[in-house]
């Protein structure tokens, strides 16, 4: 935590003296990565498996995108709540959380990239 503090001489006079733990921020950052990964995984799975595609089709006019996005948002929110409860009062540094989250976001982007997920489509 201390490593994150700006030690500029004038900084403390700007704001309240009490400082908040960094745990909730680390939890939010990690949860974002998990949500992004969930979207990528669901997108690829829906392309690879017809039963999964059908399962994710919550609403016919929208198709499987309805389920992919609903589940990804649900996974993100549940992960955020769980991680928040775990880290809420802990002085966790968010540096590692950001690194992990960026990797997860990268994997999520790969999973939503058409050239990647369409490679898993069953041969016609």
């Amino acid at each position: 935590m201390a490593a994150n503090m700006d030690t500029g001489a004038t900084a403390p006079e700007y704001v309240e003296a009490t400082d908040k733990p960094e745990g909730p921020v680390a939890a939010a950052i990690l949860a974002a990565g998990i949500g992004a990964l969930a979207l990528g995984v669901l997108t690829t799975l829906a392309e690879a498996s017809q039963p999964i595609k059908d399962f994710l089709n919550f609403y016919d006019p929208v198709g499987p995108l309805s389920g992919k996005t609903t589940w990804a948002v649900a996974v993100w929110l549940v992960a955020w709540v769980v991680l928040h409860l775990i880290y809420r009062s802990k002085p966790v540094e968010s540096r590692l959380a950001l690194a992990v989250s960026l990797v997860l976001i990268g994997l999520g982007v790969v999973g939503t990239f058409p050239v990647f997920f369409q490679a898993f489509a069953p041969a016609e």
Binding site: A11, P12, V25, A32, A36
Partner: peptide, 25 residues
Amino acid sequence: WLSPILATTVAFIVLYYGASLIRHD
């Protein structure tokens, strides 16, 4: 769909720390 997730995360960080974010470079 990645955009609102990340934007919400940033909004949370800013609302959580408020002005004291200036001390957390």
